[in-house]
Structures are given as structure tokens and as C-alpha cells.
Design a protein around this nucleic acid. Structure first.
Length: 270
DNA sequence: ATCCGGATCC
DNA sequence: GGATCAGGAT
């Protein structure tokens, strides 16, 4: 059933190439100085679709303000959004807080270790669940982000159209025993610094529509304004933003749990 | 298949 | 200016 795709020598050479490169070139990030699953969770959610370098100051502010999962669970949404402000994809912040609340409620703040339990939390998908398993618990799990996918395709000469299933089998077959944590950090650094998207010409899987002039941009501005002003009437927003779809934009922000409306007053949910 | 921020790199 | 960025939910 599972035919072996790579021979032993190919695997060994690949491991040595990546790990020796990493020894010399590795990046130093604050979330690599800990194996506490709560801190790993915070970093991984922040890192979703966001350059690692840019996450660093946000991560440090965040864990200083919310040092434990209970601190985050008990925080107000507006406090969390304020620390998050500028990082983008703001519903990640709300989801992260909800995850903290769920863990606090269900497990008495005992952090779930099984992939299935992690996947059940809204805001944690395949990548983030695997990343927590690898970086917090050093589990031999298939971790594939945009960097690792590109490195595997480039270094092992795979097709860009390779199926998720086959890529996962290959990714699993090359993890050195007992070194899941360091291995996946090494692959990511190699992808981010050596086998970059530009150099390899391998296209990214996730694409985004133009941000400038988008409704997403308006959303961001509205939220930032609310963080300053605390509350605004819908009429005032209409006056400030003059957007034909303002109603729809606000509706989505409500659906995402960012804001609520009472008697024509828009506020951040607390 | 689309939507969700905003900065950073060329 | 455009592509990319440690993705996820619907």
C-alpha cells in the first residue's frame, strides 16, 4: 500500500543538508526559548499568514500582558485587540482568547496534547495543531506550512501539484527520530532564508485579493477607531467612511465577534 | 472559492 | 506596484 517514495540515502542526505545548514544559519525567536504550549499557541496563531520577524514585538507584548492561559481567558476582548492592533486578521485575536476560555473551562487550564483535541478548537487548523504538537511536545507529526511545503518540493524535486496526501507521507518519512522540534524549525528557516519563494519560483498556495481600497481595509480602520473612541454611532461611521457596503462590513464584524450594536451604537464586544 | 490585515520584500 | 507572508473558517 505505502510504497516508499524516497530511498534511505536520499532521506539521510536531505536531513544532513538541512540540519547542518540550520546549525550555522538558524534564526533566533523568543518562542523558540520555550516549550510551554500556551506560549507556542500564542506564537502560532500570530504567525498565521504573517512574517515571523514582524510577529516578534507583538508576541513579547502579548505574553507580558497575558502571562498565563488564565490571564488571557479572563481578559476583555478590547484589551486583547489593543495588544493585537496592527498585526492584522483581527478575528485571530478573538479566537485565541476563546481558545483560552475553552481550555480553562474544559480542562481546568490543562493544555490538550492530542491533535484531535487541538483541532476541535476554532482557530486551530491542521497546521497549527501539528505545530503545537511538534514545538511544545516534540511529537513526530507532519508539520507543513508554506515554507516547509516549498522546501520539500524544491529539495526533493517534487511536483508543485503534488497531492496533500503524498506530500504528507513524504514529510513524515524524512523526520529524524526524536528531533521533530528542531527539524521543523530547521525546515522553516531554510525555506524562509535559503529556498525562498522568489528564488525557487514555487508559487504559494494561499492567495489574497488586493488590500488597498478593499472592504478589509475599511474594517481595519473601523476597528482601530473603535479601540480609540470606545464607541461610535452607525451614523458617524457612515459619515466617516462613505462606503456603499458599510452595513455589510459591520454585519461581518458582528459575525466575527468583533463588535456589537445596541441602539445604533457600535462597540467592541467585551 | 472567498473572505479575513497590514507590513515587507523586491 | 505586485507577490508573499509558520492559515483557518465558511
Amino acid at each position: 500500500m505505502n510504497r516508499k517514495v524516497l530511498n534511505e540515502k536520499t532521506i539521510k542526505d536531505f536531513q544532513i543538508k538541512i540540519l547542518s545548514w540550520y546549525k550555522i544559519n538558524k534564526r533566533d525567536f523568543p518562542w523558540r526559548k520555550t516549550t510551554d504550549p500556551y506560549f507556542i499557541l500564542v506564537s502560532e496563531v500570530m504567525l498565521q499568514q504573517t512574517q515571523a520577524k514582524r510577529v516578534v514585538p507583538y508576541y513579547e507584548k502579548f505574553v507580558k500582558k497575558f502571562p498565563t492561559i488564565n490571564d488571557l481567558a479572563d481578559a476583555k476582548n478590547s484589551e486583547v485587540l489593543l495588544v493585537w492592533s496592527g498585526l492584522g486578521f483581527n478575528n485571530r485575536a478573538i479566537r485565541l482568547k476563546e481558545i483560552a476560555k475553552t481550555i480553562q473551562l474544559n480542562n481546568g487550564a490543562a493544555f490538550p496534547e492530542k491533535i484531535d483535541e487541538l483541532l476541535a478548537l476554532k482557530g486551530i487548523g491542521n497546521y497549527t495543531a501539528a505545530a503545537i504538537a511538534a514545538f511544545a511536545f516534540n511529537k513526530k507529526t507532519v508539520v507543513i506550512d508554506t515554507n516547509i511545503r516549498r522546501v520539500l518540493i524544491h529539495e526533493l524535486h517534487l511536483s508543485e501539484n503534488i497531492s496533500q496526501k503524498l506530500l504528507s507521507e513524504i514529510a513524515l518519512s524524512v523526520i529524524p527520530n526524536g528531533k521533530s522540534r528542531i527539524w521543523h524549525n530547521a525546515l522553516m528557516d531554510y525555506g524562509a532564508m535559503a529556498a525562498t519563494a522568489r528564488l525557487t519560483n514555487i508559487k504559494s498556495k494561499s492567495k489574497q485579493s488586493t488590500f488597498k481600497g478593499s472592504e478589509r481595509e475599511v474594517r481595519g480602520k473601523i476597528l482601530k477607531l473603535l479601540l480609540d473612541e470606545k464607541k461610535l454611532t452607525k451614523a458617524k461611521l457612515a459619515e466617516l467612511f462613505l462606503h456603499e457596503n458599510l452595513e455589510e462590513i459591520i454585519r461581518k464584524m458582528k459575525t466575527d465577534g468583533l463588535v456589537e450594536e445596541r441602539r445604533g451604537l457600535i462597540t467592541i464586544i467585551n
